[in-house]
Design a binder for these strands. Structure first.
Lengths: 257, 257
DNA sequence: CACTGCGTGTGTATAAGATACACACGGTGC
DNA sequence: GCACCGTGTGTATCTTATACACACGCAGTG
């Protein structure tokens, strides 16, 4: 049945799983399995082989149990994934109170970016609802907290946080897609990139995309070396955003003086 | 088999489908079907019932053909989706050359946002590779072109464009998820939102999320009325970004003077 | 005008995967 | 010692994607 819908329909269950009282009834028999072990195995699998390789069977086999045993702990696959997402998100970084908000924001974004590199499958998950897991909320909380001493409105802080989150996630997804495409063709990052570039060029020399083809021709899509040079991609825009916020704050301070 | 991987493995085919010479061989028999009709039907289905409802069978039935007939036009489901994505993306808006870059950027973002509202399933698609379809590229081109007279570097323009794209997409996805969750519970937007808010509150009163709970308590998650009040969400941050770019440009102009 | 080849649509078969259901097993508490 | 309940299992079913081989009919060729 519908994966996303399914998850939504049972989202109550996900909530329970996410926040459930850890005090297992412990009533009787030997619980050889546990939700934690299942999630850990599932994440390991997804890390290693991607979301597509994630099946209830594979997970169960990793733990030497039968497929159905998993359903004792999760009502369905989408709930498993919900919990995987929250678990893989992990705790947000500790942002130094001492530092300025700007630095904190940058740290936050870099940390989120890194988390996506660690668990690329997170970018492929068909999200089933608004974030409600403890870790997901903690990340949002961290972003908001990093803006606390800016004097921004609550709504403004929220706007900025969501914007940042969207930008990091969107960028991470894009570069991850490029990387996957590369892997699929069986070449390494750099070569693939030129492969992609070639494709683009073949299609772009039409005068239909003047700006884009100029950029591609100038080699803008070529990543430097390291994967985090892709991070560069957003750093310019990010800096401008922060500049803009700074300017806004100063202006407002002036007005209130 | 793997959906995403599958698509990647056959991405060559997708490229052909996306850019293929429209001159069908036309060699012989009556082509009662066509890639165009299939895509149109598939989009209609996805618009109406979401991505989960999209199966080869449903699409074929809509056209009164058998499931397998579709495979004459698309090697697999993921290629179909690739083409659906590009088709649904449609042409980017015409951005008035007369207007300033700032206005153009805002128009671009609003247009993209609207497009996502028209085809919410686009936000659920597990992207299978970097954008290579004509329309996708046209959107990117449009974003870049809107920044043409800013004097930004190519790389900077690209950075900003991708950042914007990520932000709009991320935000759209988030609000779409909230909406879906609402629909799944069977309540309308506003009520659901308070439902979501209630859940949050139940979980947030722990002092674990001070900032977030303050914001939620202040009702920040409550959407005004119209759905595009959600768009508000990013407008503040967006304006700051544009401010930042403006400031950067002025500063640079000063330096060069 | 009959022939052959290819493009188009179909029917059938397979395989993967999620998940419902009923049962076996073994401690736990009385 | 016994009834119960939680835990894990085996089997069955349903949904989907997709491979394969075939039927059909028009196009251009003799």
């Amino acid at each position: 049945m519908a994966t996303t819908r399914g998850s939504n329909e049972k989202s109550g269950s996900s909530l329970d799983l996410l926040w459930g009282d850890r005090t297992k009834p412990q009533r009787s028999a030997r619980p050889g399995l546990s939700a934690e072990r299942i999630v850990a195995a599932a994440i390991e699998l997804a890390d290693a082989e991607g979301l597509d390789a994630l099946s209830m069977q594979r997970v169960a086999n990793m733990l030497d149990f039968t497929t159905m045993s998993i359903y004792r702990y999760f009502p369905g696959k989408s709930q498993l994934i919900d919990v995987m997402m929250d678990t893989a998100a992990g705790s947000p970084p500790d942002l130094p109170e001492a530092a300025g908000w700007r630095e904190r924001v940058e740290l936050w974004m870099a940390a989120l970016w890194d988390r996506y590199q660690q668990h690329p499958w997170m970018l492929q998950v068909q999200v089933s609802g608004p974030p409600v897991g403890p870790n997901q909320l903690a990340w949002l909380e961290a972003a908001l907290r990093s803006l606390r001493d800016t004097g921004l409105t609550h709504n403004e802080m929220l706007s900025v946080s969501l914007f940042l989150n969207g930008a990091v996630t969107g960028l991470a997804r894009l570069t991850s897609d490029v990387a996957h495409a590369a892997a699929a063709i069986g070449v390494d990052q750099r070569d693939m990139n030129s492969e992609y570039v070639q494709t683009l060029e073949r299609v772009l020399d039409s005068e239909r995309f003047p700006t884009l083809s100029a950029i591609v021709a100038a080699g803008a899509f070529q990543p430097g070396d390291a994967p985090d040079s892709d991070t560069r991609g957003f750093s310019f825009a990010l800096r401008r955003l922060l500049d803009g916020i700074e300017g806004y704050l100063e202006e407002r301070a002036d007005q209130h003086r």
